[in-house]
């Protein structure tokens, strides 16, 4: 019989069986916004709310805000694949270099 108990440093702790909560809406443990070199910029005037960008986005980074009736873009997860720009029938999306925007920094210590 043994009374031995491991001492595991806090930062190395893992839940029993490595079972973790699954992300429901967003996964803050897997932010992918820093994968992109360009972001899609929307011209709300020209947007017809056809929802093509919402349908085609592989990462669900476009959604319709029902209050303002505008398409909203999620900077934290958009990988900059530009599929939305390609699929927009109203030509209201344009790609623009990420460094043209001083704000919206997604800075991480480690990449995923």
């Amino acid at each position: 019989m043994s009374d031995f108990k491991f001492k595991i440093p806090k930062h190395l702790e893992v839940p029993m069986g490595a079972v973790i909560p699954a992300p429901v809406k967003e996964n803050p443990g897997m932010i992918t916004g820093n994968w992109r070199t360009e972001r899609p910029v929307i011209d709300h005037e020209a947007c017809t709310l056809c929802l093509n960008c919402f349908i085609f986005c592989p990462d669900a980074c476009w959604h319709l805000d029902e209050k303002t009736e505008k398409m909203m873009w999620n900077a934290r997860y958009c990988k900059g694949c530009m599929i939305c720009v390609n699929e927009c029938p109203a030509d209201c999306l344009t790609p623009q270099n990420e460094l043209d925007f001083p704000k919206g920094v997604v800075r991480l210590d480690k990449p995923f």
Binding site: G33, N34, W35, R36, T37, N97, E98, L99, V105, V106, R107, L108, D109, P111
Partner: peptide, 13 residues
């Protein structure tokens, strides 16, 4: 190798 990385990563970590 790509300047936009400096916005996404703490490159000097």
């Amino acid at each position: 190798m790509d300047d936009t990385i400096i916005k996404g990563m703490d490159i000097l970590h």
